[in-house]
Design a protein around this nucleic acid. Structure first.
Length: 408
RNA sequence: GGGGAGGUUCCCGAGUGGCCAAAGGGGGCAGACUGUAAAUCUGUUGGCAACGCCUUCGAAGGUUCGAAUCCUUCUCUCCCCA
């Protein structure tokens, strides 16, 4: 078994490292304490967080000890890295709620025994300003900070002092984790490079200890679309914000040229298998996409949901299978449907259309179907005669499905 | 603190009294093509009880028959000076 670094390199997690030789020496010794931060600025982790989660899992499998740092303190500030605008301030209560949800989600990826989940609010919140400036602030050169790309960019659009301080806080986190847990490695997305290097420098100055930083490449899609974005927003890990079926479908529909890369990054399948699947061409690569979607959905939502999603997708798009239960649904009473409901009203009630105007457009343009029957008239009334097997299968366009289950 | 420039629909960005629900681009959605891919082409893109009505152009007032466009106050951002 290797020290973990070759796994990361082989699978595409390796972008930059502050000192590869040192990293190798450290990892060879085994049991390295490493950390990665997650700021609880939203109610759920999303596709963009998957890379660090998988990286942590790989390193843990190689025998190292992860620390998932929840940025309950730093989230009160907002990291300007990679952003062009200031992030709006969140309430402390809000941040705490987010933090709890994120902790649960992170726990799906790493084994969280022995207190490997910490919140930096623990040491950042009680900080004394004057003391912090004396102890930590003196080690930072504004000139140097301004030379960083992230700040340069923000100088054009505006950078508040509070955001400018983010780097000091993240550096202090690294220092604190080094002191408390002997943490010697910080990993993160490449947009964190500046912050990681700053933390490394701080530890060298204050503790005279050498630590290492490693970043992952920022993942992009071959078609230039934003990673993890759907028409309705981000691909969240929280099933109430993005259903397992929709999550599955996002990965099932990834561009051909990304399949191999994503299999390596977002599944635990052996690299050899990823390459094999990624090499498929034409029609055949759909099989590889299904594997990608299935494996990832399984990790995030569990085997049962992954099975249901796959079955539903097969039933909807191919002749294989007939179990559509994995497709998102709402319920409607039989008396309600017996009375009849207008097509537009019906579609507008599902997540297929967000307004009646949108539903009208869908129907007018010929994209609305119920149980495979095209509905082109906006006045059309849907009643019991449309029901099959106790439900209505609504379809918008070629690949968006939704079920209306008739009850009572 | 002084001076200047600005805040427009999901985003960027036109519009400086009626022809403005607001150009253009991006994004989204739909149709054609196809492999539940990409690329391309076409249409469409505030809401609704829809030949009409309502809400939107930083916020609140005001002028006017009529304002995103004019005036007042407030607020936020950027730039220059201190």
């Amino acid at each position: 078994m290797g020290n973990g670094i070759e796994v990361l390199q082989e699978r595409g997690f390796f972008k930059q490292c502050t000192d590869v030789d040192l990293l190798n020496r450290l990892l060879d010794e085994g049991g390295v304490r490493f950390y990665c931060g997650f700021d609880p600025t939203g109610p759920s982790l999303h596709a963009g967080h998957l890379i660090p989660l998988f990286a942590m899992a790989h390193l843990q499998k190689a025998g190292h000890k992860p620390i998932a740092l929840i940025g309950g303190g730093t989230a009160r500030i907002g990291d300007p890295s990679g952003k062009t605008e200031m992030r709006k301030m969140l309430t402390i209560k809000n941040i705490q709620e987010n933090a709890e949800k994120m902790a649960e989600q992170i726990a799906r990826f790493i084994d969280t025994d022995e207190g490997t989940m910490v919140d930096n609010a623990e040491w950042l919140a009680p900080l004394n300003y004057i003391q912090f400036l004396r102890d930590i602030g003196k080690h930072f050169s504004v000139n140097r900070m301004l030379s960083f790309e992230t700040y340069k960019k923000r100088l054009e659009t505006g950078l508040s002092f509070i955001e400018f301080n983010y780097q000091l806080l993240q550096s202090y986190d690294f220092l604190e984790l080094n002191r408390r847990y002997g943490c010697t490695l910080q990993i993160g997305g490449d947009d964190q490079w500046g912050n990681i290097v700053a933390g490394m420098d701080l530890i060298r100055r204050v503790e005279s200890r050498e630590v290492v930083g490693l970043t992952f490449p920022l993942v992009t899609r071959a078609d230039g679309k934003k990673m993890g974005k759907t028409e309705k927003g981000a691909v969240f890990l929280d099933p109430s914000m993005c259903s397992p079926y929709d999550f599955f479908q996002y990965w099932r529909n990834v561009p051909d040229n990304d399949v191999e890369k994503f299999l390596l990054l977002y599944t635990f399948l052996p690299a050899r298998e990823c390459w094999r699947l990624g090499n498929m061409r034409g029609q055949a690569i759909n099989e590889a996409k299904e594997v990608l979607a299935y494996e990832l959905t399984k990790i995030v939502h569990g085997t049962e949901e992954a099975d249901r999603s796959r079955e539903a997708a097969r039933a909807a798009f191919s002749s294989r299978g007939d179990d559509l239960s994995g497709i998102p649904s709402i319920e409607m009473t039989s008396s309600e449907i017996a009375a009849g409901i207008n097509v537009m009203d019906l579609f507008a009630r599902t997540s297929l259309c967000s307004s009646k105007g949108e539903a009208r457009r869908l129907v007018t343009q010929g994209g609305a179907r119920i149980n495979d029957r095209k509905i082109g008239e906006i006045e059309a009334m849907i009643d019991s005669s449309f029901v099959e097997n106790g439900e209505l299968l609504l379809r918008a366009g070629k690949k968006r499905y939704f079920r209306v289950i008739i009850t009572g």
